[in-house]
Design a protein around this nucleic acid. Structure first.
Length: 309
RNA sequence: CGCGGGGUAGAGCAGCUUGGUAGCUCGUCGGGCUCAUAACCCGGAGGUCAUGAGGUUCAAAUCCCAUCCCCGCAA
């Protein structure tokens, strides 16, 4: 069947690749316009575009999906199925209803939990032990469509956003292939999501500030849920920003020390939390690149007794 | 022209304001202590101070100029 793929970042790329490699007819790819990114604001194409161009798949980067223009484009492509993975924009009704097999979305959570923009990060930050992928038929609401297939993935104690992202991207890609096949043969019965929906709001700057007065597990979950992007942060006594790339739970016994106090710099930075001690293993000092906690300590930028805030 | 930090020993840094001896923590090598050690003590090696037969100077890591490279923030 003729497929129109809509997606933007790496997470979507895994699914697009899977479709192509499985021999599906991907007639065109719709992705976000190139945007100024990085230092110097260089115009950067999204990953999906780069790959599509390599494969000689037509790439479309409309500013809006509403209106005559895209409706016409849609007729030209005339897809039987639209696959949407992390496209980053709401699809209007006329697009949702166009394809014979409707629009399928790959979402990084076990719906109806964690609808929305940052399901993987939020699941980790909340300390979930299990998350997964849900494929659904898209409806007008945000991730509210009827569910098609689900697959679970465990979140281990030291998984972070990167490991979960990569795992779910791969899982989503394979579940997508199953879903497409199922739709084609009519072997999947869509089921409504039911009660219990929660929303995974976009990550804001204010979400990234570490509060050491919280339980050590929550601190650890925040650090890994935001690593490697955008990274949680705290401040050293001189007021400088200190981002944290990696941590481990050192102990779950309260120390009696002030929360945020550095109690050891022996190869790693150990900081007192409400009910235990967190070990910071990797940092990004303000104005510097990533480095291990040991390197940061060797540069004499932190010492026992410092209070992080 | 988005804002800013930086390039000094294998790593992370100080020194630059107020030019004049290459410094700190770690690693590494050797020795010692120890039942033993990644712990402790002693000693050593290791640096064209990003590049430029540039400028100023008696003298430049330090001041000036140019170039290259790296990074953080913001989007």
């Amino acid at each position: 069947m003729r497929i129109l793929f809509m997606g933007t970042p790496d997470f979507a790329l895994a699914s697009l690749k899977a479709l192509c490699e499985a021999g599906h007819d991907v007639a065109a790819v719709v992705t976000q316009p190139d945007k100024p990114r990085g230092r110097g604001h260089y115009l950067t194409p999204p990953p999906v575009k780069v790959y599509a161009q390599e494969k000689n798949i037509p790439v479309l980067q409309p500013l809006t999906l509403r209106g005559e223009e895209f409706a016409k484009t849609l007729e030209d492509i005339d897809p039987e199925l639209i696959v949407v993975v992390a496209y980053g924009r709401i699809l209007p009704k006329n697009v949702l209803e166009y394809p014979k097999y409707k629009c399928v979305n790959v979402h990084g959570s076990l719906l109806p939990e964690y609808r929305g923009a940052a399901p993987m990060q939020r699941a980790i930050i909340d300390g979930k032990r299990v998350t997964g992928i849900t494929t659904m038929l898209m409806a007008e609401g945000l991730d509210t469509g009827d569910m098609l297939l689900k697959a679970e993935a465990k979140i281990e104690e030291n998984d972070n956003f990167e490991t979960i992202h990569d795992r779910l991207a791969a899982l989503g890609a394979s579940l997508l292939l199953d879903t497409v096949k199922g739709l084609e043969y009519g072997s999947i019965t869509p089921i409504p999501q039911g009660e219990g929906a929660t929303y995974a709001a976009k990550i804001e700057k204010t979400d990234c500030l570490i509060d050491f007065s919280k339980p050590v597990d929550e601190v650890h979950n925040l650090i890994r849920g935001l690593s490697p992007i955008p990274l949680s942060f705290t401040h050293t006594p001189d007021g400088k920003l200190l981002k944290i790339t990696e941590s481990r739970i050192f102990s779950r016994k309260a120390t009696g020390e002030a929360c945020g106090k550095v109690i050891s710099t022996d190869g790693e930075i150990r900081v007192a939390c409400a009910d235990g001690v967190i070990s910071l293993l990797g940092v990004v000092p303000e104005g510097k690149g990533r480095m291990s906690a040991a390197d940061f300590i060797n540069g004499r930028k932190i010492s026992v007794g410092d209070i992080l805030f």
